[in-house]
Amino acid sequence: MNKPNSRRNFLVAAGGLAAGIALPATVAAQMPGAPAATQEAIRRMVGTARINKGKVTLDLPALVDNGNAVSLAVRVDSPMTESEYVKAIHLFTEKNPQPDVASFHLGPRAGRASIATRIRLADSQAVIAICEMSDGSFWSGSANTVVTLAACLEEI
């Protein structure tokens, strides 16, 4: 995954494009910049629900040392009480061979709507976090990063 393969990326993008024709207007309209494969993955997760902008903060380094392990943190603006909490956080990428990255299921017992992990990024791109609230609403946030290539590798 750390070695971008343009042909493979092209095929994935082409596949996504074909699937994207059937996209409900909502996702496409709300994530205008995202490639079709990413929009399709988001649609599978949220269905036809409306995705609002805001409440979600995605921390990603602006410049990444190595795309094999990129530190990422997501914080959601939520009181995390019994009646009002974050149910799930879903992560998607735009240029990886597969747009889905991970889903995290939280609840009122989390106390704080915040997670951190490390992800792979095949290229410089945007990462999108979509959060599902206890009231059924969806919120999104995104961040862009530049992935530099490592020097002095093993293979020629």
Binding site: M1, N68, A69, V70, T93, N96, P97, Q98, D100, V101, A102, S103, F104, H105, T117, R118, I119, R120, L121
Partner: peptide, 9 residues
């Protein structure tokens, strides 16, 4: 709970 895809490091 978390579900991982291949993009997790």
């Amino acid at each position: 709970r978390a579900e991982f895809h291949p993009a997790i490091a």
